[in-house]
Design a binder for these strands. Sequence first.
DNA 1: CGGACTGTTGACAAACTTCAATCCGAGTGG
DNA 2: CCACTCGGATTGAAGTTTGTCAACAGTCCG
Lengths: 288, 288
Amino acid sequence: METIPPAIPCPNQAPQCAAASISTHETMARVLQMFEPDSADQPVAAKFPVLLRRVHAGESLVHEGAPADAIFFVRLGTFKVFRIAEDGYEQVLAFAVRREVLGFEALCAASYPAAMQALEDSTVYVIPRCEIAQLSHALPSFALVLQRAGSLTLTHSRELVDILAAVASDVRLARFLIQLSKRMAACGQSPRRFLLRMGRREIASLLGVAHETVSRCFSALAAMGFLYVNDREIDILDMNGLKAFSRSTRRQTDDAPGPRHPGLVRPTARTPVRALAHPSGLMPGGAI
Amino acid sequence: METIPPAIPCPNQAPQCAAASISTHETMARVLQMFEPDSADQPVAAKFPVLLRRVHAGESLVHEGAPADAIFFVRLGTFKVFRIAEDGYEQVLAFAVRREVLGFEALCAASYPAAMQALEDSTVYVIPRCEIAQLSHALPSFALVLQRAGSLTLTHSRELVDILAAVASDVRLARFLIQLSKRMAACGQSPRRFLLRMGRREIASLLGVAHETVSRCFSALAAMGFLYVNDREIDILDMNGLKAFSRSTRRQTDDAPGPRHPGLVRPTARTPVRALAHPSGLMPGGAI
DNA sequence: CGGACTGTTGACAAACTTCAATCCGAGTGG
DNA sequence: CCACTCGGATTGAAGTTTGTCAACAGTCCG
Protein backbone atom coordinates (compact mmCIF):
# COMPACT_ATOMS: atom_id res chain seq x y z
CA MET A 1 0.00 0.00 0.00
CA GLU A 2 0.96 3.65 -0.33
CA THR A 3 2.68 3.00 -3.64
CA ILE A 4 1.68 5.26 -6.42
CA PRO A 5 0.75 3.38 -9.58
CA PRO A 6 0.72 5.14 -12.95
CA ALA A 7 -2.74 6.66 -12.96
CA ILE A 8 -6.12 5.80 -11.59
CA PRO A 9 -8.87 8.21 -12.51
CA CYS A 10 -10.25 10.00 -9.47
CA PRO A 11 -13.98 10.58 -9.84
CA ASN A 12 -14.58 13.65 -7.70
CA GLN A 13 -11.53 15.59 -8.54
CA ALA A 14 -10.70 18.33 -10.96
CA PRO A 15 -9.34 17.39 -14.40
CA GLN A 16 -5.78 18.42 -13.58
CA CYS A 17 -5.58 15.53 -11.17
CA ALA A 18 -2.40 13.93 -12.40
CA ALA A 19 -2.13 10.70 -10.46
CA ALA A 20 -3.88 9.10 -7.52
CA SER A 21 -4.05 5.92 -5.52
CA ILE A 22 -5.82 4.50 -2.51
CA SER A 23 -4.81 4.26 1.11
CA THR A 24 -6.54 3.72 4.46
CA HIS A 25 -7.38 5.87 7.44
CA GLU A 26 -5.12 3.72 9.55
CA THR A 27 -2.15 4.44 7.32
CA MET A 28 -3.07 8.09 7.11
CA ALA A 29 -3.21 8.41 10.89
CA ARG A 30 0.18 6.77 11.15
CA VAL A 31 1.75 9.01 8.53
CA LEU A 32 0.26 12.11 10.12
CA GLN A 33 1.59 10.92 13.48
CA MET A 34 -1.53 12.21 15.09
CA PHE A 35 -2.19 9.28 17.40
CA GLU A 36 -1.78 5.54 17.65
CA PRO A 37 -4.40 4.02 15.38
CA ASP A 38 -7.11 2.40 17.45
CA SER A 39 -7.37 -1.24 16.45
CA ALA A 40 -11.07 -1.22 17.31
CA ASP A 41 -11.58 1.24 14.48
CA GLN A 42 -10.00 -0.95 11.85
CA PRO A 43 -13.13 -2.72 10.64
CA VAL A 44 -14.94 0.58 10.26
CA ALA A 45 -11.96 2.31 8.73
CA ALA A 46 -11.76 -0.43 6.13
CA LYS A 47 -15.06 0.76 4.73
CA PHE A 48 -13.64 4.21 4.04
CA PRO A 49 -10.69 4.06 1.70
CA VAL A 50 -8.73 7.28 1.40
CA LEU A 51 -7.78 8.80 -1.91
CA LEU A 52 -4.16 9.77 -2.27
CA ARG A 53 -3.43 12.48 -4.81
CA ARG A 54 -0.14 13.47 -6.31
CA VAL A 55 0.44 17.12 -7.13
CA HIS A 56 3.43 18.18 -9.18
CA ALA A 57 5.59 21.19 -8.43
CA GLY A 58 3.80 24.33 -9.54
CA GLU A 59 0.49 22.56 -9.94
CA SER A 60 -2.62 23.93 -8.25
CA LEU A 61 -4.37 21.79 -5.69
CA VAL A 62 -7.38 24.08 -5.51
CA HIS A 63 -8.22 27.40 -7.04
CA GLU A 64 -9.42 30.42 -5.11
CA GLY A 65 -13.20 30.46 -4.99
CA ALA A 66 -13.65 26.91 -6.22
CA PRO A 67 -16.42 24.91 -4.57
CA ALA A 68 -15.08 23.38 -1.38
CA ASP A 69 -15.42 19.67 -2.18
CA ALA A 70 -12.76 18.26 0.06
CA ILE A 71 -10.09 18.82 2.66
CA PHE A 72 -6.56 17.52 2.36
CA PHE A 73 -3.79 16.28 4.60
CA VAL A 74 -0.27 16.84 3.34
CA ARG A 75 1.51 13.52 3.19
CA LEU A 76 4.64 14.83 1.55
CA GLY A 77 5.79 18.11 0.08
CA THR A 78 5.10 21.82 0.53
CA PHE A 79 2.19 24.04 -0.44
CA LYS A 80 1.54 27.72 -0.49
CA VAL A 81 -1.85 29.18 0.37
CA PHE A 82 -2.54 32.50 -1.33
CA ARG A 83 -4.99 34.97 -2.77
CA ILE A 84 -4.77 37.16 -5.83
CA ALA A 85 -5.87 40.75 -5.30
CA GLU A 86 -7.85 42.61 -7.92
CA ASP A 87 -4.74 44.34 -9.19
CA GLY A 88 -2.88 41.07 -9.55
CA TYR A 89 -0.82 41.19 -6.38
CA GLU A 90 -0.29 37.72 -4.94
CA GLN A 91 -0.83 37.68 -1.20
CA VAL A 92 0.64 34.57 0.42
CA LEU A 93 -1.28 33.57 3.55
CA ALA A 94 0.56 30.45 4.67
CA PHE A 95 2.92 27.67 3.78
CA ALA A 96 1.95 24.11 4.62
CA VAL A 97 4.26 21.14 5.00
CA ARG A 98 3.86 17.48 5.84
CA ARG A 99 1.19 16.55 8.42
CA GLU A 100 -0.78 19.75 8.00
CA VAL A 101 -4.36 20.08 6.88
CA LEU A 102 -5.36 22.13 3.84
CA GLY A 103 -8.82 23.51 3.29
CA PHE A 104 -9.93 23.39 6.91
CA GLU A 105 -10.91 27.04 6.67
CA ALA A 106 -13.46 26.10 4.01
CA LEU A 107 -15.53 23.95 6.37
CA CYS A 108 -17.53 27.01 7.38
CA ALA A 109 -18.01 28.20 3.80
CA ALA A 110 -19.19 27.00 0.43
CA SER A 111 -15.99 27.67 -1.45
CA TYR A 112 -12.28 27.83 -0.78
CA PRO A 113 -11.29 31.35 0.30
CA ALA A 114 -7.75 30.88 -0.96
CA ALA A 115 -5.85 28.98 -3.62
CA MET A 116 -3.33 26.26 -2.83
CA GLN A 117 -0.41 25.33 -4.98
CA ALA A 118 2.38 22.78 -4.62
CA LEU A 119 5.88 24.26 -4.35
CA GLU A 120 7.48 20.87 -4.97
CA ASP A 121 6.23 17.44 -5.96
CA SER A 122 3.80 16.55 -3.23
CA THR A 123 1.10 14.10 -2.23
CA VAL A 124 -2.02 14.69 -0.19
CA TYR A 125 -4.74 12.56 1.33
CA VAL A 126 -8.11 13.64 0.00
CA ILE A 127 -11.15 13.61 2.29
CA PRO A 128 -14.31 14.46 0.35
CA ARG A 129 -16.42 16.92 2.24
CA CYS A 130 -19.52 14.80 2.02
CA GLU A 131 -17.75 12.07 3.96
CA ILE A 132 -16.65 14.27 6.84
CA ALA A 133 -19.86 14.09 8.84
CA GLN A 134 -20.17 10.31 8.48
CA LEU A 135 -16.50 9.78 9.19
CA SER A 136 -16.58 11.97 12.27
CA HIS A 137 -19.35 9.86 13.68
CA ALA A 138 -18.34 6.40 12.51
CA LEU A 139 -14.65 6.84 13.20
CA PRO A 140 -14.07 8.78 16.42
CA SER A 141 -10.35 8.79 15.82
CA PHE A 142 -10.94 10.68 12.58
CA ALA A 143 -12.90 13.36 14.41
CA LEU A 144 -9.96 13.79 16.76
CA VAL A 145 -7.45 13.89 13.93
CA LEU A 146 -9.48 16.58 12.26
CA GLN A 147 -9.83 18.60 15.45
CA ARG A 148 -6.16 18.39 16.22
CA ALA A 149 -5.11 19.18 12.67
CA GLY A 150 -7.38 22.21 12.60
CA SER A 151 -6.07 23.27 15.97
CA LEU A 152 -2.49 22.91 14.75
CA THR A 153 -3.21 25.01 11.69
CA LEU A 154 -4.79 27.70 13.81
CA THR A 155 -1.75 27.62 16.07
CA HIS A 156 0.49 28.16 13.06
CA SER A 157 -1.65 31.00 11.85
CA ARG A 158 -1.52 32.65 15.28
CA GLU A 159 2.25 32.30 15.28
CA LEU A 160 2.25 33.92 11.88
CA VAL A 161 0.37 36.87 13.32
CA ASP A 162 3.11 37.07 15.91
CA ILE A 163 5.69 37.04 13.12
CA LEU A 164 3.92 39.72 11.11
CA ALA A 165 3.34 41.98 14.07
CA ALA A 166 7.08 42.28 14.67
CA VAL A 167 8.42 45.78 14.20
CA ALA A 168 11.53 45.38 12.16
CA SER A 169 11.68 43.39 8.97
CA ASP A 170 14.84 41.51 10.00
CA VAL A 171 13.07 40.38 13.17
CA ARG A 172 10.16 39.20 11.07
CA LEU A 173 12.46 37.18 8.90
CA ALA A 174 14.21 35.72 11.95
CA ARG A 175 10.89 34.67 13.46
CA PHE A 176 9.78 33.21 10.15
CA LEU A 177 12.93 31.14 9.89
CA ILE A 178 12.55 29.86 13.43
CA GLN A 179 8.97 28.83 12.80
CA LEU A 180 10.07 27.13 9.62
CA SER A 181 12.88 25.41 11.45
CA LYS A 182 10.47 24.04 14.04
CA ARG A 183 8.14 22.78 11.38
CA MET A 184 11.00 21.11 9.53
CA ALA A 185 11.94 19.37 12.75
CA ALA A 186 8.32 18.36 13.33
CA CYS A 187 8.25 16.55 10.02
CA GLY A 188 11.52 14.75 10.57
CA GLN A 189 14.01 16.99 8.82
CA SER A 190 16.96 18.91 10.13
CA PRO A 191 15.98 22.08 12.00
CA ARG A 192 19.36 23.63 11.23
CA ARG A 193 19.86 23.10 7.54
CA PHE A 194 17.15 23.16 4.97
CA LEU A 195 16.24 24.25 1.51
CA LEU A 196 13.63 26.97 1.11
CA ARG A 197 10.93 25.76 -1.23
CA MET A 198 9.65 29.29 -1.83
CA GLY A 199 11.18 32.31 -3.52
CA ARG A 200 12.09 35.65 -2.00
CA ARG A 201 9.02 37.22 -3.50
CA GLU A 202 6.75 34.68 -1.80
CA ILE A 203 8.43 35.15 1.56
CA ALA A 204 8.14 38.90 1.10
CA SER A 205 4.44 38.61 0.37
CA LEU A 206 3.88 36.52 3.49
CA LEU A 207 5.90 38.85 5.68
CA GLY A 208 4.39 41.98 4.24
CA VAL A 209 7.63 43.56 3.04
CA ALA A 210 9.29 44.25 -0.30
CA HIS A 211 11.24 41.36 -1.77
CA GLU A 212 14.36 43.49 -1.85
CA THR A 213 13.97 43.91 1.88
CA VAL A 214 13.86 40.14 2.36
CA SER A 215 17.05 39.85 0.41
CA ARG A 216 18.71 42.57 2.50
CA CYS A 217 17.52 40.98 5.74
CA PHE A 218 18.97 37.62 4.76
CA SER A 219 22.25 39.41 4.21
CA ALA A 220 21.92 41.21 7.51
CA LEU A 221 21.19 38.04 9.49
CA ALA A 222 24.14 36.40 7.77
CA ALA A 223 26.36 39.37 8.58
CA MET A 224 25.34 39.03 12.22
CA GLY A 225 26.61 35.47 12.11
CA PHE A 226 23.27 33.76 12.68
CA LEU A 227 22.93 32.20 9.27
CA TYR A 228 24.70 30.95 6.24
CA VAL A 229 22.66 31.81 3.19
CA ASN A 230 23.20 30.78 -0.39
CA ASP A 231 20.20 31.40 -2.53
CA ARG A 232 17.63 29.02 -1.08
CA GLU A 233 20.05 27.02 1.02
CA ILE A 234 19.83 27.97 4.67
CA ASP A 235 22.11 26.88 7.48
CA ILE A 236 21.34 28.24 10.91
CA LEU A 237 24.73 28.68 12.52
CA ASP A 238 23.65 30.21 15.82
CA MET A 239 20.15 29.13 16.76
CA ASN A 240 20.30 30.67 20.23
CA GLY A 241 21.50 33.95 18.85
CA LEU A 242 18.82 33.93 16.18
CA LYS A 243 16.16 33.21 18.77
CA ALA A 244 17.42 35.97 21.05
CA PHE A 245 17.36 38.35 18.12
CA SER A 246 13.85 37.23 17.16
CA ARG A 247 12.58 38.18 20.60
CA SER A 248 13.16 41.85 19.91
CA THR A 249 9.87 43.65 20.34
CA ARG A 250 8.57 47.13 20.02
CA ARG A 251 9.36 49.33 22.97
CA GLN A 252 7.46 47.80 25.85
CA THR A 253 4.33 49.19 27.41
CA ASP A 254 5.77 51.76 29.80
CA ASP A 255 8.40 50.66 32.23
CA ALA A 256 11.85 49.81 30.84
CA PRO A 257 12.90 52.07 27.97
CA GLY A 258 16.12 50.13 27.34
CA PRO A 259 17.69 49.53 23.94
CA ARG A 260 15.82 47.23 21.59
CA HIS A 261 18.57 44.62 21.51
CA PRO A 262 20.08 44.47 24.99
CA GLY A 263 23.69 43.44 24.68
CA LEU A 264 23.34 42.97 20.97
CA VAL A 265 24.67 45.50 18.53
CA ARG A 266 22.86 45.77 15.24
CA PRO A 267 25.71 45.85 12.78
CA THR A 268 25.32 48.08 9.82
CA ALA A 269 27.82 46.04 7.85
CA ARG A 270 26.69 45.30 4.35
CA THR A 271 29.03 42.49 3.49
CA PRO A 272 27.81 40.62 0.42
CA VAL A 273 26.21 37.33 1.33
CA ARG A 274 28.30 35.21 -0.96
CA ALA A 275 31.48 36.52 0.56
CA LEU A 276 30.59 35.06 3.97
CA ALA A 277 32.53 31.86 4.43
CA HIS A 278 30.69 28.78 5.54
CA PRO A 279 32.40 27.11 8.53
CA SER A 280 32.50 23.70 6.87
CA GLY A 281 33.98 25.18 3.74
CA LEU A 282 31.67 24.57 0.83
CA MET A 283 28.03 23.91 1.46
CA PRO A 284 27.38 20.28 0.54
CA GLY A 285 25.00 19.58 -2.28
CA GLY A 286 21.69 18.01 -1.29
CA ALA A 287 21.10 20.00 1.85
CA ILE A 288 17.48 19.35 2.62
CA MET B 1 -33.09 28.89 31.11
CA GLU B 2 -30.18 31.11 30.21
CA THR B 3 -30.85 33.37 33.13
CA ILE B 4 -27.86 34.00 35.34
CA PRO B 5 -28.64 33.33 39.00
CA PRO B 6 -26.40 34.80 41.73
CA ALA B 7 -23.64 32.24 41.93
CA ILE B 8 -23.35 28.52 41.51
CA PRO B 9 -19.90 27.13 42.26
CA CYS B 10 -18.30 25.68 39.16
CA PRO B 11 -16.21 22.62 40.00
CA ASN B 12 -13.61 22.58 37.27
CA GLN B 13 -12.94 26.23 36.96
CA ALA B 14 -10.35 28.60 38.30
CA PRO B 15 -11.06 30.44 41.55
CA GLN B 16 -11.66 33.77 39.84
CA CYS B 17 -14.83 32.30 38.33
CA ALA B 18 -17.25 35.02 39.30
CA ALA B 19 -20.64 33.66 38.32
CA ALA B 20 -21.95 30.71 36.39
CA SER B 21 -25.10 28.92 35.45
CA ILE B 22 -26.27 25.99 33.40
CA SER B 23 -27.57 25.77 29.87
CA THR B 24 -28.04 23.07 27.21
CA HIS B 25 -26.36 22.20 23.96
CA GLU B 26 -29.57 22.90 22.16
CA THR B 27 -29.69 26.44 23.49
CA MET B 28 -26.02 26.89 22.80
CA ALA B 29 -26.39 25.81 19.20
CA ARG B 30 -29.26 28.22 18.76
CA VAL B 31 -27.35 31.13 20.27
CA LEU B 32 -24.30 30.37 18.18
CA GLN B 33 -26.54 30.21 15.12
CA MET B 34 -24.46 27.37 13.82
CA PHE B 35 -27.28 25.16 12.64
CA GLU B 36 -30.85 24.22 13.36
CA PRO B 37 -30.75 22.03 16.46
CA ASP B 38 -31.49 18.44 15.53
CA SER B 39 -34.46 17.30 17.54
CA ALA B 40 -33.16 13.73 17.44
CA ASP B 41 -30.21 14.89 19.50
CA GLN B 42 -32.30 16.34 22.28
CA PRO B 43 -32.43 13.28 24.52
CA VAL B 44 -28.67 12.85 24.29
CA ALA B 45 -28.00 16.54 24.69
CA ALA B 46 -30.03 16.59 27.86
CA LYS B 47 -27.40 14.38 29.46
CA PHE B 48 -24.71 16.99 28.83
CA PRO B 49 -25.56 20.27 30.50
CA VAL B 50 -23.37 23.18 29.47
CA LEU B 51 -21.74 25.49 31.97
CA LEU B 52 -22.23 29.17 31.32
CA ARG B 53 -19.60 31.45 32.80
CA ARG B 54 -19.72 35.17 33.28
CA VAL B 55 -16.51 37.14 32.88
CA HIS B 56 -16.34 40.77 33.93
CA ALA B 57 -14.62 43.50 31.95
CA GLY B 58 -10.88 43.24 32.41
CA GLU B 59 -11.08 39.80 33.94
CA SER B 60 -8.94 36.97 32.56
CA LEU B 61 -10.69 33.94 31.11
CA VAL B 62 -7.47 31.94 30.85
CA HIS B 63 -3.86 32.75 31.49
CA GLU B 64 -1.05 32.12 29.04
CA GLY B 65 0.47 28.72 29.67
CA ALA B 66 -2.31 27.48 31.93
CA PRO B 67 -3.34 23.83 31.49
CA ALA B 68 -5.86 23.61 28.68
CA ASP B 69 -8.91 22.31 30.56
CA ALA B 70 -11.66 23.59 28.35
CA ILE B 71 -12.71 25.44 25.25
CA PHE B 72 -15.22 28.26 25.23
CA PHE B 73 -17.86 29.70 22.94
CA VAL B 74 -18.51 33.40 23.28
CA ARG B 75 -22.18 33.93 24.05
CA LEU B 76 -21.91 37.66 24.61
CA GLY B 77 -19.13 40.22 24.81
CA THR B 78 -15.62 40.69 23.46
CA PHE B 79 -12.30 39.08 24.29
CA LYS B 80 -8.72 39.74 23.38
CA VAL B 81 -6.23 36.93 22.81
CA PHE B 82 -2.63 37.91 23.58
CA ARG B 83 0.83 36.94 24.69
CA ILE B 84 3.31 38.76 26.90
CA ALA B 85 6.88 38.83 25.57
CA GLU B 86 9.84 38.42 27.87
CA ASP B 87 10.39 42.16 27.97
CA GLY B 88 6.79 42.83 28.90
CA TYR B 89 5.47 43.82 25.49
CA GLU B 90 1.87 42.72 25.03
CA GLN B 91 1.30 41.14 21.63
CA VAL B 92 -2.37 40.95 20.73
CA LEU B 93 -3.12 38.00 18.45
CA ALA B 94 -6.87 38.30 17.95
CA PHE B 95 -10.14 39.73 19.14
CA ALA B 96 -13.12 37.44 19.57
CA VAL B 97 -16.76 38.42 19.62
CA ARG B 98 -20.06 36.58 19.96
CA ARG B 99 -20.33 33.15 18.31
CA GLU B 100 -16.60 32.58 18.17
CA VAL B 101 -14.67 29.78 19.82
CA LEU B 102 -11.85 30.45 22.27
CA GLY B 103 -9.13 27.95 23.07
CA PHE B 104 -9.49 25.88 19.91
CA GLU B 105 -5.77 26.30 19.28
CA ALA B 106 -5.12 24.44 22.55
CA LEU B 107 -6.68 21.18 21.33
CA CYS B 108 -3.32 20.14 19.88
CA ALA B 109 -1.38 21.12 22.99
CA ALA B 110 -1.34 20.62 26.73
CA SER B 111 -1.63 24.27 27.69
CA TYR B 112 -3.08 27.45 26.30
CA PRO B 113 -0.52 29.19 24.08
CA ALA B 114 -2.10 32.58 24.72
CA ALA B 115 -4.06 34.42 27.39
CA MET B 116 -7.65 35.55 26.94
CA GLN B 117 -9.21 38.49 28.65
CA ALA B 118 -12.67 40.05 28.53
CA LEU B 119 -12.78 43.59 27.16
CA GLU B 120 -16.32 44.10 28.43
CA ASP B 121 -18.72 42.11 30.60
CA SER B 122 -19.11 38.84 28.76
CA THR B 123 -20.45 35.32 29.05
CA VAL B 124 -19.07 32.12 27.56
CA TYR B 125 -20.20 28.54 27.26
CA VAL B 126 -17.63 26.25 28.85
CA ILE B 127 -16.90 22.86 27.29
CA PRO B 128 -14.51 20.85 29.48
CA ARG B 129 -11.84 19.25 27.40
CA CYS B 130 -12.48 15.81 28.83
CA GLU B 131 -16.01 15.94 27.45
CA ILE B 132 -15.04 16.83 23.90
CA ALA B 133 -14.32 13.32 22.68
CA GLN B 134 -17.52 11.88 24.17
CA LEU B 135 -19.59 14.80 22.96
CA SER B 136 -18.17 14.59 19.46
CA HIS B 137 -19.27 10.99 19.25
CA ALA B 138 -22.54 11.09 21.17
CA LEU B 139 -23.74 14.34 19.68
CA PRO B 140 -22.84 14.57 15.99
CA SER B 141 -24.17 18.09 15.82
CA PHE B 142 -21.62 19.13 18.43
CA ALA B 143 -18.79 17.72 16.33
CA LEU B 144 -20.01 19.83 13.44
CA VAL B 145 -20.38 22.94 15.56
CA LEU B 146 -16.83 22.49 16.76
CA GLN B 147 -15.49 21.93 13.25
CA ARG B 148 -17.28 24.95 11.88
CA ALA B 149 -16.29 27.16 14.79
CA GLY B 150 -12.66 26.14 14.42
CA SER B 151 -12.87 26.70 10.70
CA LEU B 152 -14.37 30.15 11.25
CA THR B 153 -11.62 31.07 13.66
CA LEU B 154 -8.99 29.93 11.20
CA THR B 155 -10.69 32.00 8.51
CA HIS B 156 -10.50 35.06 10.75
CA SER B 157 -6.88 34.42 11.49
CA ARG B 158 -6.12 34.11 7.77
CA GLU B 159 -7.92 37.37 7.15
CA LEU B 160 -5.81 38.89 9.86
CA VAL B 161 -2.70 37.76 8.02
CA ASP B 162 -4.09 39.55 5.01
CA ILE B 163 -4.61 42.66 7.12
CA LEU B 164 -1.13 42.54 8.59
CA ALA B 165 0.56 41.91 5.27
CA ALA B 166 -0.76 45.18 3.90
CA VAL B 167 1.92 47.70 3.07
CA ALA B 168 0.72 50.93 4.50
CA SER B 169 -0.54 51.32 8.02
CA ASP B 170 -3.65 53.23 6.98
CA VAL B 171 -4.59 50.36 4.68
CA ARG B 172 -4.08 47.96 7.56
CA LEU B 173 -6.40 49.98 9.73
CA ALA B 174 -8.98 50.18 6.95
CA ARG B 175 -8.90 46.41 6.49
CA PHE B 176 -9.12 45.88 10.22
CA LEU B 177 -12.18 48.09 10.46
CA ILE B 178 -13.85 46.31 7.58
CA GLN B 179 -13.25 42.94 9.17
CA LEU B 180 -14.59 44.27 12.44
CA SER B 181 -17.59 45.69 10.66
CA LYS B 182 -18.37 42.33 9.10
CA ARG B 183 -18.07 40.59 12.42
CA MET B 184 -20.34 43.12 14.07
CA ALA B 185 -22.89 42.46 11.37
CA ALA B 186 -22.49 38.71 11.82
CA CYS B 187 -23.45 39.01 15.46
CA GLY B 188 -26.44 41.17 14.81
CA GLN B 189 -25.09 44.67 15.34
CA SER B 190 -24.77 47.58 12.97
CA PRO B 191 -21.91 47.21 10.51
CA ARG B 192 -21.70 50.98 10.12
CA ARG B 193 -21.67 52.33 13.63
CA PHE B 194 -20.07 50.67 16.56
CA LEU B 195 -18.03 51.21 19.68
CA LEU B 196 -14.50 49.88 19.75
CA ARG B 197 -14.05 47.71 22.80
CA MET B 198 -10.26 47.92 22.62
CA GLY B 199 -7.84 50.79 23.03
CA ARG B 200 -5.50 52.28 20.45
CA ARG B 201 -2.57 50.48 22.02
CA GLU B 202 -4.28 47.11 21.60
CA ILE B 203 -5.18 47.81 18.00
CA ALA B 204 -1.61 48.94 17.40
CA SER B 205 -0.25 45.73 18.87
CA LEU B 206 -2.51 43.63 16.67
CA LEU B 207 -1.63 45.61 13.55
CA GLY B 208 2.07 45.72 14.31
CA VAL B 209 2.45 49.49 14.36
CA ALA B 210 3.01 52.17 16.98
CA HIS B 211 -0.10 53.34 18.78
CA GLU B 212 0.55 56.90 17.65
CA THR B 213 0.40 55.62 14.09
CA VAL B 214 -3.01 54.10 14.73
CA SER B 215 -4.21 57.43 16.01
CA ARG B 216 -2.81 59.23 12.98
CA CYS B 217 -4.37 56.72 10.61
CA PHE B 218 -7.78 57.15 12.20
CA SER B 219 -7.38 60.85 11.58
CA ALA B 220 -6.26 60.22 8.02
CA LEU B 221 -9.20 57.93 7.22
CA ALA B 222 -11.53 60.52 8.73
CA ALA B 223 -9.88 63.28 6.69
CA MET B 224 -10.47 61.22 3.57
CA GLY B 225 -14.16 61.17 4.46
CA PHE B 226 -14.46 57.45 5.06
CA LEU B 227 -15.07 57.60 8.78
CA TYR B 228 -16.31 59.64 11.64
CA VAL B 229 -14.14 59.00 14.65
CA ASN B 230 -14.57 60.18 18.19
CA ASP B 231 -12.42 58.29 20.63
CA ARG B 232 -13.82 54.76 20.46
CA GLU B 233 -16.97 55.66 18.59
CA ILE B 234 -16.76 54.75 14.93
CA ASP B 235 -19.16 55.61 12.17
CA ILE B 236 -18.33 54.38 8.71
CA LEU B 237 -19.59 57.10 6.39
CA ASP B 238 -18.43 55.67 3.07
CA MET B 239 -18.19 51.92 3.20
CA ASN B 240 -17.52 51.55 -0.53
CA GLY B 241 -14.79 54.14 -0.42
CA LEU B 242 -13.24 52.49 2.60
CA LYS B 243 -13.33 49.10 0.89
CA ALA B 244 -11.80 50.50 -2.26
CA PHE B 245 -9.07 52.09 -0.21
CA SER B 246 -8.49 48.86 1.71
CA ARG B 247 -7.79 47.04 -1.54
CA SER B 248 -4.59 49.00 -2.08
CA THR B 249 -1.76 46.54 -2.37
CA ARG B 250 1.94 46.61 -2.78
CA ARG B 251 3.03 47.24 -6.36
CA GLN B 252 1.85 44.20 -8.22
CA THR B 253 4.04 41.39 -9.46
CA ASP B 254 5.31 42.83 -12.74
CA ASP B 255 2.80 44.06 -15.25
CA ALA B 256 0.96 47.28 -14.38
CA PRO B 257 3.13 49.79 -12.52
CA GLY B 258 0.31 52.27 -12.11
CA PRO B 259 -0.35 54.42 -9.04
CA ARG B 260 -1.24 52.63 -5.83
CA HIS B 261 -4.64 54.26 -5.57
CA PRO B 262 -6.03 54.54 -9.09
CA GLY B 263 -8.36 57.47 -9.19
CA LEU B 264 -7.96 58.08 -5.49
CA VAL B 265 -5.77 60.85 -4.21
CA ARG B 266 -4.21 60.31 -0.81
CA PRO B 267 -4.78 63.61 0.87
CA THR B 268 -2.06 64.84 3.14
CA ALA B 269 -4.48 66.99 5.05
CA ARG B 270 -4.00 66.75 8.77
CA THR B 271 -7.28 68.19 9.95
CA PRO B 272 -7.81 67.39 13.63
CA VAL B 273 -10.33 64.61 14.12
CA ARG B 274 -12.56 66.49 16.49
CA ALA B 275 -12.90 69.29 13.98
CA LEU B 276 -14.53 67.04 11.40
CA ALA B 277 -18.25 67.55 11.48
CA HIS B 278 -20.51 64.54 11.65
CA PRO B 279 -23.18 64.64 8.95
CA SER B 280 -25.99 64.13 11.44
CA GLY B 281 -24.73 66.88 13.64
CA LEU B 282 -23.83 65.50 17.00
CA MET B 283 -23.05 61.84 17.33
CA PRO B 284 -25.92 60.26 19.23
CA GLY B 285 -25.15 58.71 22.55
CA GLY B 286 -25.49 54.93 22.75
CA ALA B 287 -23.93 54.10 19.42
CA ILE B 288 -23.16 50.42 19.70
C1' DC C 1 22.97 33.50 -27.79
C1' DG C 2 19.02 36.19 -26.53
C1' DG C 3 15.30 36.44 -23.20
C1' DA C 4 13.18 35.76 -18.92
C1' DC C 5 13.48 35.09 -14.21
C1' DT C 6 15.47 35.17 -9.57
C1' DG C 7 18.37 37.22 -6.29
C1' DT C 8 21.46 40.99 -4.70
C1' DT C 9 22.82 45.63 -3.97
C1' DG C 10 22.78 51.01 -4.27
C1' DA C 11 20.41 55.53 -3.96
C1' DC C 12 16.71 58.35 -2.89
C1' DA C 13 12.08 59.47 -1.28
C1' DA C 14 8.36 58.24 1.57
C1' DA C 15 6.53 56.18 5.63
C1' DC C 16 7.05 54.96 10.14
C1' DT C 17 8.92 54.99 15.00
C1' DT C 18 10.30 57.50 18.72
C1' DC C 19 10.34 61.30 21.90
C1' DA C 20 7.67 64.96 23.49
C1' DA C 21 3.83 68.03 24.55
C1' DT C 22 -1.02 68.68 25.07
C1' DC C 23 -5.91 67.72 25.83
C1' DC C 24 -9.48 65.29 27.96
C1' DG C 25 -12.23 62.20 30.97
C1' DA C 26 -12.36 59.18 34.92
C1' DG C 27 -11.37 58.23 39.33
C1' DT C 28 -9.58 59.74 44.02
C1' DG C 29 -8.89 62.01 48.19
C1' DG C 30 -9.02 66.24 50.72
C1' DC D 1 -17.35 69.84 45.41
C1' DC D 2 -13.06 70.49 43.57
C1' DA D 3 -8.14 70.02 42.82
C1' DC D 4 -5.33 66.34 41.69
C1' DT D 5 -3.49 62.52 39.38
C1' DC D 6 -3.54 59.03 36.00
C1' DG D 7 -4.14 56.95 31.70
C1' DG D 8 -5.86 57.23 26.94
C1' DA D 9 -5.85 59.74 22.73
C1' DT D 10 -4.06 63.17 19.59
C1' DT D 11 -0.64 65.83 17.35
C1' DG D 12 4.20 67.80 16.26
C1' DA D 13 9.14 67.26 15.13
C1' DA D 14 13.17 64.57 14.24
C1' DG D 15 15.65 60.43 13.08
C1' DT D 16 15.56 55.79 11.18
C1' DT D 17 13.74 52.07 8.46
C1' DT D 18 11.76 50.62 4.49
C1' DG D 19 9.65 50.98 -0.20
C1' DT D 20 10.67 52.07 -4.77
C1' DC D 21 13.39 52.58 -8.87
C1' DA D 22 17.38 51.06 -11.04
C1' DA D 23 21.30 48.30 -12.26
C1' DC D 24 23.71 44.00 -12.40
C1' DA D 25 24.98 38.95 -11.80
C1' DG D 26 23.73 34.25 -12.29
C1' DT D 27 20.69 30.48 -14.13
C1' DC D 28 17.62 28.17 -16.91
C1' DC D 29 15.56 27.43 -21.42
C1' DG D 30 14.23 27.72 -26.06
